[in-house]
Amino acid sequence: MTPLDTAHAAMQAAPDDDTARLRFYERLADGELFLLLESEAKGDSLTPQVFDLEGGPVVLVFDLEERLAAFTGIPAPYAAMPGRVIAAHLAGQGIGLGLNLGVAEAAMLLPPEAVDWLAETLDNPPEAVEARPVAFHAPDLAEALLTGLDAKLARAGGLADHALLAGVSYDDGSTGLVLAFIDTAPGAEAPLARAAGEALTFSGLDQGGIDVIFLAATDAATAPLTKVALRFDLPQPEVPETITPIAPGSDPDNPPKLRW
């Protein structure tokens, strides 16, 4: 069972559960998928194989290399990349997405409308605001949001040392949730803020948002925040002894050029 298998089974078992459906789409976006290509990649240019089905054109992806091989039955070119990158490229083109067709129980055909929705949901950059916190307190949040944050931050290794989640009161009388990333790596602010926003979106909850801040361990606000906050330790990646070439499409911040 892959993570996508588990999420798909939960969605199928509870067709009226919006949270289960959102969790499936979150796994689809975050997981590595193997996209069947028409020909071998040429540099950063990829040509997906498009199938004309009765319901319209689709491209095929699989969440395991073995599943792609089982579908083709012969060696075939493919590219590995996050589902969010594929959705972003397909958006607005009227092309659907076939997942694990014919090779797994977690098989389904996403119409173009579903692909467009996923791409639009993921393309929701955080907004910068100014506010002055006056007090921190223990957070009051639903289990679904806590689970979503834990999963998101587990994949953010190396972007910060750890994160602290707490309730916050501001000088204008408003209250909310604040997620503080401690000792953030240079340039990691935007992806971390986006990950926090997606955790809230895919939790299916309406908690008004999460405020994200970035602090150093030595900042004055860090000590009082630590006393009341939930702590998330981000994985620290091992430093490789040698540099491994990056496969085309594997970096969501440097997506390949897809040609149709």
Results as ranks from 00 to 15, higher is better:
residue 131 A to I: 04
residue 131 A to W: 04
residue 154 A to M: 07
residue 156 A to Q: 13
residue 234 L to I: 00
residue 181 F to P: 15
residue 112 P to N: 03
residue 15 P to D: 00
residue 250 S to T: 04
residue 255 P to I: 07
residue 192 L to S: 01
residue 255 P to G: 15
residue 50 V to E: 14
residue 4 L to R: 07
residue 199 A to Y: 08
residue 246 I to L: 14
residue 182 I to F: 01
residue 43 G to V: 06
residue 229 A to T: 03
residue 97 L to R: 07
residue 154 A to W: 10
residue 93 Q to V: 00
residue 161 D to L: 07
residue 122 L to Q: 06
residue 110 L to H: 13
residue 48 P to Y: 06
residue 166 A to C: 05
residue 62 F to V: 02
residue 187 G to T: 03
residue 105 E to H: 07
residue 231 R to D: 11
residue 124 N to D: 15
residue 122 L to D: 06
residue 221 A to M: 05
residue 181 F to R: 10
residue 57 P to I: 03
residue 140 D to Q: 15
residue 108 M to E: 11
residue 215 L to A: 05
residue 214 F to G: 13
residue 3 P to M: 02
residue 119 A to V: 01
residue 4 L to P: 03
residue 168 V to I: 10
residue 33 L to Y: 10
residue 209 G to V: 01
residue 162 H to W: 11
residue 74 I to V: 13
residue 31 G to H: 09
residue 102 G to R: 14
residue 86 I to K: 08
residue 65 E to H: 12
residue 96 G to E: 02
residue 189 E to C: 06
residue 2 T to Y: 03
residue 30 D to C: 09
residue 257 K to R: 12
residue 24 F to G: 07
residue 68 L to K: 05
residue 127 E to C: 10
residue 25 Y to F: 14
residue 63 D to N: 10
residue 42 K to M: 11
residue 91 A to H: 15
residue 181 F to G: 04
residue 24 F to Y: 11
residue 54 E to K: 14
residue 154 A to H: 01
residue 106 A to S: 12
residue 203 S to W: 09
residue 205 L to A: 14
residue 95 I to C: 02
residue 195 A to V: 01
residue 29 A to M: 08
residue 143 E to G: 10
residue 254 N to T: 14
residue 153 L to P: 12
residue 139 P to D: 07
residue 184 T to Q: 00
residue 158 G to W: 00
residue 84 R to H: 10
residue 259 R to P: 00
residue 59 V to G: 04
residue 186 P to L: 02
residue 199 A to I: 09
residue 190 A to S: 09
residue 73 G to C: 04
residue 47 T to Q: 13
residue 199 A to D: 10
residue 239 V to W: 00
